[in-house]
Design a protein around this nucleic acid. Structure first.
Lengths: 337, 337
DNA sequence: TTACATTACGAAACCGGTTTCGTAAATAAA
DNA sequence: TTTATTTACGAAACCGGTTTCGTAATGTAA
């Protein structure tokens, strides 16, 4: 903790601390000579004002919070990159919180950022989250909130998402076009809006193609990679095994590859695979993976941009901002005929 | 910004704010009944104390900063995970800063966390960083700093790294054992200690194997993926092309795969590849990639643990802490004979 | 009954800035 | 020359907590 403060500067120069404060922030009330003296001394003494003292008085923290389920995931790291790029330009600091997909963690986190710690919040909700109360409390406290990717639809605030329904539809359609008939959608959540939309698109594509609804055409993974692996392996080892898998997230796709490899199932000949994924390695997988690639960086960037509007413009109506940035389907070998 | 503060609680209950403050923190000076009243009202009003007011008085922010070159990289996201897991348990908040491999960015960031904003700093330096001044200033201000992965050796403080020299040696040795003779080490920096150590280990293995030192056996990549791709492609297209590549970082390995694919060079038959990498997809690449896998999570966890010792124990001597957590060589198909 | 200790609380200082407001001195306008 | 205005600065309040210290009321020991 630096022991040098504005009072020391003032005493050293035999002026008042108000003068120092104003001089450092280029107030018109202060003469050029005084400003020069003050700034030189400040530089010499490596003085930098305590941000919390300033925050207390100004009621602005110049800090935002990013609340996410996890970080070791291509989508989320790219999204943070996008968020950070905007925050950096604006001169804001970024606090990172991980819910680890638990509602209770998320609730606790949200309780800790409701009290002036941050000027705004970007959040991608946990799988478990259904209750809007923690977020509503934040909004009630006047702190702007923007959802990115995973939203809670019942909360009236801005969101930046991608066209999940369409992507689910298009992905399933591609698999159908490639001649697959026993499609399996492996989702990482039965309740998250993004997953439900992808699932709905998937189901609709099957209906449109005249495929009868079958039970077991959608299964739900967990957060545990091993149990997902078991689940997938079991499903791929069944007599009536799927001939195509659509994975809702990259972590599941990886387990599908491993399970298929383990079982000696050839992709794409015996099993086609398509995944929602931001894996940089998709083009060099064995075989290269067809993906629905989300604009992760742009989602982060756009969400942050909207958040800053909400922070800086008092009468900006966040709840009217519902941005949808389309994902891109990139065909690769894992779905070739 | 929540408008409800300790004064409002006090007024509502017709007691003083000192009593409220003490009651909320279970001071022995306050009677059970008063504590109960205060806590109930606080809960009812969703009161949560302003952390910056508290920080100002206590001279503790319960916040740490993590300064890294980038975040969209498996190593760094896993490291953050490790850091976060410790911070969470300790009840600390985590600020994330990205230097984007630029010294000037890093310097600016370090200037902004020297003033009470954080109680400690975890840093992995940028490629460009050679000057210890910004970090020394922080240490001089009494803020503990711990390096993780990328350290600045001239600064006297704690560091958590991996056994880079040995890994460089072992990796090269493996490639030699597989019959390769024209090894190429592609490094992402000529100056970073971790890269220099890996390179030194690599060179030593070649010497020990009686391979004459050749120029061009080590080349240096940039931060730009396209230019790395060009560099690699050029090198692989040369007459005397390498028969094995050791990549110092996963981003480079990916470009090697893409370039080899583009040139129709078969891995591992015509080119063996080994990379320092934390890619989750290493086992399912085409072909699966032999890696030196760094204990990213553990490095983050260990660095954070040491940092908190430095924060909490006044007389803990950080400069004596030099932890080295070994990496693991995992053989896969990309180096098979 | 007196002296001393304990309990429970409030007033005020404090952390380190920012902001408001008052004012002396210098300058401009009348 | 007098009055109005501008310039440049300082004193003090303020942000919202925490902490120190003083003290009235009650309890306990001598």
């Amino acid at each position: 903790m630096s022991t040098i403060n504005i009072q020391i500067l003032a005493d050293t120069l035999n002026i008042s601390k108000s003068t120092v404060s104003k001089a450092l922030r280029d107030s018109h009330e202060i003469s050029k000579e005084t400003k020069k003296k003050v700034k030189e001394l400040a530089a010499k003494m490596n003085y930098s004002p305590n941000p919390y003292a300033s925050s207390l008085r100004k009621k602005k923290s110049r800090t935002i919070a990013v609340v996410m389920p996890e970080i070791a995931d291509s989508f989320f790291s790219l999204a943070i990159n996008g968020i950070q790029s905007v925050a950096e330009k604006k001169g804001y600091h970024v606090l990172i919180y991980l819910s680890h997909e638990k509602y209770t963690n998320e609730k606790k986190i949200l309780g800790e950022v409701r009290n002036g710690r941050v000027d705004g919040i970007l959040i991608s909700i946990s799988k478990e989250t259904k209750n809007e109360e923690p977020i509503d409390k934040i909004l009630a406290a006047g702190v702007p909130v923007v959802f990115f990717d995973r939203e809670l639809e019942s909360v009236h605030t801005a969101s930046v998402t991608t066209n999940d329904y369409e992507c689910g539809y298009v992905a399933a359609k591609l698999l159908l076009q490639k001649g697959c008939r026993r499609l399996l959608f492996i989702s990482h959540s039965a309740s998250l809006p993004i997953c439900k939309k992808r699932e709905a698109g998937f189901r609709m594509a099957l209906l449109d193609a005249g495929c009868p609804e079958k039970k077991g055409q959608v299964i739900y993974g967990t957060d545990n990679e091993k149990s997902n692996y078991q689940l997938i392996k079991k499903s791929l080892a069944a007599k009536q095994r799927p001939d195509a898998i659509l994975a809702s997230v990259e972590k599941i796709a990886i387990q599908v590859y491993i399970a298929a490899q383990e079982l000696g199932l050839k992709i794409p000949e015996e099993l086609k695979v398509l995944a929602f994924s931001n894996l940089e390695t998709a083009p060099i997988l064995n075989p290269s993976l067809t993906t629905v690639t989300q604009p992760a960086f742009e989602i982060g960037k756009s969400a942050a941009t909207i958040l800053f509007k909400g922070i800086e413009k008092k009468h900006f109506r966040l709840e009217n901002e519902r941005v949808i940035i389309p994902s891109v389907l990139i065909e690769r070998r894992s779905t070739s005929i």
